[in-house]
Simulated scan of single mutants.
Amino acid sequence: MLLRLPGVYPPQEDTWLLADALAAERLGRDSRVLDLCTGTGALSLRAAAIGARYVTAVDISRRAVVTTQLNAILHRHSIRVIQGDLTTPVQDQRFDVVISNPPYVPAHDDVLPTRGVERAWDAGVDGRVLLDRICTHAPRVLAESGVLLIAQSVLSGIEKTQSMLEEQGLSVEVVARAEIPFGRVLSARAALFEARGLIAPGQRTEEIVVLRAAKPSLDKEVM
């Protein structure tokens, strides 16, 4: 069971797809995990349940921070929860795994909401306002041989995410895919997506993927 304050993104198919990818990683007690855009803290809880002792959850939303703190207490896991903007609060630290299920839904304009439930999914015209920043900044907090796991929709450009991460020196692959029906938000924007050529006429499903980006070890970099 997960508690959720109003306005906090509820775990959905993308959350559980990413959680399964996280479970496939070899996390030990000394693993350091960073959960960006934590929401309810579902992914942080999964990391702790798998066995990671050092889990940090970050979200810019005060309600998400409180929600994650409450869920950590409810499930009896020790999770450090920080209110902040992506990696800014932890830029001097290094993590073995960084996970993120950020807002990635294409919106009418590039003005990001600062309050309300739309904050949990609106991500600019191309859906990449948060994705681009994560691709740039997350690799900087990865430890040697660290892994970034990120979920997104094909509507927000998988190829660009892969290209940006590769430019940061990471090895990138898609490790999970799922075709899911449009929910309320995407259904309301179907005409907008059709006009932009993001979906075919009448299409009412989207593909969600999880990308795994691995940082090479120093030995491989030397070679």
Rank of each mutant, 00 (worst) to 15 (best):
T40R: 02
I208G: 00
R32A: 08
V66E: 15
R184D: 13
T15C: 00
I150Q: 08
A52C: 11
Q83S: 06
L43I: 14
P106C: 05
A178L: 11
M164W: 10
L45N: 01
R196E: 15
V58I: 13
R46H: 13
V98A: 12
A213E: 05
E179A: 12
T136M: 14
C135F: 06
D132T: 11
P89M: 14
G51T: 11
R140L: 15
V97H: 08
D126M: 06
M1N: 04
L27A: 05
L86Q: 03
R184A: 14
E25C: 07
L34E: 08
G124M: 04
L186N: 10
H137N: 15
E13A: 11
T56K: 03
R76G: 00
S187E: 15
A23R: 14
I82C: 05
R63F: 13
G197T: 08
L211F: 01
Q152E: 14
S156I: 06
G116N: 03
Q162R: 14
S217Q: 00
M223Y: 00
V98C: 11
G146H: 03
M1H: 09
S31C: 09
R62F: 13
Q203K: 07
T88E: 15
G7I: 04
A47Q: 09
L43S: 07
R4T: 13
Q203Y: 00
V185S: 09
Q93N: 12
R29N: 02
V125Q: 04
A19W: 02
T68Y: 11
E144T: 15
D92T: 14
T67C: 12
D126T: 12
P89D: 14
T88L: 13
H75D: 06
G197K: 08
P10M: 03
D122C: 09
A120C: 14
T161C: 10
D85I: 09
N71R: 06
L148V: 03
L36H: 11
A72I: 02
L142D: 04
S44N: 10
E206Q: 09
A178P: 01
Q83D: 10
L86M: 12
G7K: 09
A195G: 09
Y104T: 03
R119W: 00
S153P: 09
A151Y: 07
